Computed example of a mutant assay.
Amino acid sequence: MVCRDNPPADCCRPAVVRAYQEMRGRGQPEKFCLEAAITVYRYHHPSPDNLPPEVMAMVTGWVHDGPRH
């Protein structure tokens, strides 16, 4: 499923956070877990090779804050 900008970019947030948390739960290094989370984001939001710094910050914030209910 590809997210659209309406709703906002956080439509894939649960999948991004889950990928990160599951890898961390298996003892993987932070760097690899964050890369996996970004890969999931990119799956939902196809974009050029370089993600804007705002997207990197957003995904990092998601995985460190956890899922919202």
Results as ranks from 00 to 15, higher is better:
T60Y: 08
G61N: 00
V63F: 12
M56D: 09
E22A: 03
A19Y: 07
A19V: 10
T60H: 13
M23F: 10
M56Y: 15
P8M: 08
C33M: 01
I38C: 07
R26Q: 11
P46H: 09
P29Q: 12
V17N: 06
M58T: 07
R24A: 13
W62H: 09
R42L: 09
R42S: 05
T60Q: 14
P8Y: 07
E54S: 13
R26N: 00
P29T: 05
Q21P: 10
M1F: 14
K31I: 04
W62Y: 12
V63Q: 04
C12E: 10
N6I: 02
R24L: 14
P52Q: 09
N50V: 13
V59K: 04
P52E: 14
M56F: 15
H64T: 00
A9P: 09
V63W: 00
D5R: 05
R26A: 08
Y43F: 13
P48L: 07
A15H: 06
T60N: 14
G66D: 01
P48E: 12
K31W: 05
R42I: 05
V17K: 01
A15C: 08
H64K: 08
A19H: 03
H44A: 04
Q21E: 15
M58F: 09
R68V: 04
M23I: 02
P7H: 01
N50C: 15
I38L: 10
Y20A: 04
